[in-house]
Design a protein around this nucleic acid. Structure first.
Lengths: 220, 220
DNA sequence: TTTCGGATTTAAGGATTCTTTAAGAATTGG
DNA sequence: CCAATTCTTAAAGAATCCTTAAATCCGAAA
């Protein structure tokens, strides 16, 4: 799944925006026309379309309509001032936001951030190439989904939410197993191991989940 | 979340509209100026703003801009004929609809109903090759209609409306059966099975309705 | 360097949770 | 009122996950 699919035939402009967005850790693809946009969308999916209405061939209106047939992926319309006509008004009903060309890049970024926040980010927790989503209870490492069990997820979440802090074993155990649990802390270390197997580049030499001798663990 | 936030300094007019809207079962709040509108909006959120451009203090343009910074909540602009100028044109780009004062209350209600329908009341829900229609309570998989029972439909709808989210069994059961006796959750799992038989390509290895161990189910 | 306590690893049950099946109860429609 | 459909319940079988325990490894202090 691509974060942002930019549909724009002005390569220079697209590249510029693309750079800015990548700097903010979005994954971005560019399509220079409507056909390619749909192709990319169907193949990979996207979390947001930044759609210029004025395109060679299939125009923005058609792309928007096509997308809307099968999903409610957010669409941010980009259009030149001169194109303000009836068609545009109709289009806006189906779109999630609108910006006029030429636009200020900061405003564009703010709008995009806003859409993401409203639509997706409410339950996402990102750290490096790791992405936890509380809602779907999924963990992604880069583009790839990592399947974790219930306890593993809770443990990772607890660590990630306290990024940088050292959490002692007692605390971790109580947090996840509950204070009234009879089982031993031994089980915690086993879960830590399994997590490391899954999220560390080199589980033998963990960097994300560090052990703090005599105390507990730290997520970085 | 408020359904409709009316921003209007003419109290009489606001109350009138408010009454009509409440009669149609919308939840309504009134703000007599821009500051209060933003305050209410930030506090509670709203599904639609009915925004008079001519306000004491912060005007409609500013309110609209502020709202648009953080969301794409539909905005219905209300303005007197005499105010038609450039600024208004710019505003309309960010708005979803427009009505001139003095307006006919029925037309206003129709516009509001239209916005709600377009934006919120989609009665078709599409996901992949699956299509649910809330109105006719039918399910299509590709071209073919799948006959589902009442409970099955509700269950599928509930899952599909929360696509990607993990719904725990308690929640699902309460949502559909309306109570939460634990032993009876068995019945939920049975319905899940039947749904899978009907909508999954390979019911033995479900992909649409995924089980999340120790938690519940997730529709993807 | 040695020692010791803590940390890691491994694998095998044990426990829990999910799936499946089927029978009978409840509901609906003719 | 009967028949057909739908729903609930229960129980056995599967799948998955968790815990335990024992062996091993490692870091810090003497």
């Amino acid at each position: 799944m691509i974060d942002i699919l930019i549909v724009e035939d002005n390569k220079e402009l697209a590249d510029l925006l693309c750079d800015f967005l990548r700097a903010e850790n979005y994954t971005v693809s560019v399509a220079e026309n409507g056909e390619k946009a749909l192709q990319l969308y169907q193949r990979y999916g996207a979390r947001l379309l930044v759609l210029d209405v004025m395109l060679p061939g299939m125009d923005g209106f058609a792309v928007c309509a096509k997308i809307r047939e099968e999903s409610n992926t957010p669409i941010l319309i980009v259009s030149a001032k001169t194109e303000k006509d009836d068609k545009l008004a109709g289009l806006l009903a189906g779109a999630d936001d609108y910006i006029e060309k030429p636009y200020d890049i900061d405003i564009m970024l703010a709008k995009i951030a806003g859409i993401f926040k409203r639509r997706y980010a409410q339950d996402e927790l990102v750290s490096g190439d790791l992405r936890l989503n509380k809602e779907s209870r999924t963990v992604h490492k880069g583009e790839q989904e990592i399947s974790v069990t219930a306890k593993e997820f809770e443990l990772l979440l607890c660590l990630a939410e306290n990024q940088g802090k050292v959490l002692n074993k007692d605390y971790l155990f109580r947090e996840i197993w509950g204070s009234d649990s009879f089982s031993e802390q031994q089980t915690l270390t086993v879960h830590i191991k399994w997590l490391r197997e899954k999220i560390e580049d080199d589980p033998k030499h963990p960097t994300r989940i560090q052990t703090v001798w005599g105390v507990g663990y730290k997520f970085v």
